[in-house]
Amino acid sequence: MDTMKVGQSATIISFTDEVMSLKLLEMGCVPGEVVTLERKAPLGDPIAISVAGYLLSLRIDEACTVIVSIHD
């Protein structure tokens, strides 16, 4: 997810960190869900994505654990 550019959308595929994934799952980041990178903080980190109809912010090292398929 950390390679996404602002405005890009992607579909969540899977997670690389089990503990982190539990937190993300319960907040609605489930595989198959479409996310959009809405904005980055001025210093590039954290980032804000829209998922399941709301805005979620997370640090880059947290976003790294989410494998997504970026839409064209």
């Binding site: 503990v19 982190m20 937190k23 993300l24 907040m27 954290p46 804000a48 709301y54 805005l55 979620l56 912010s57 997370l58 640090r59 947290e62």
Partner: peptide, 11 residues
């Protein structure tokens, strides 16, 4: 406990 940043940005 493990700390997260993950947080909702409310409207």
């Amino acid at each position: 406990e493990r700390g997260y940043y993950i947080m909702e940005m409310p409207v």
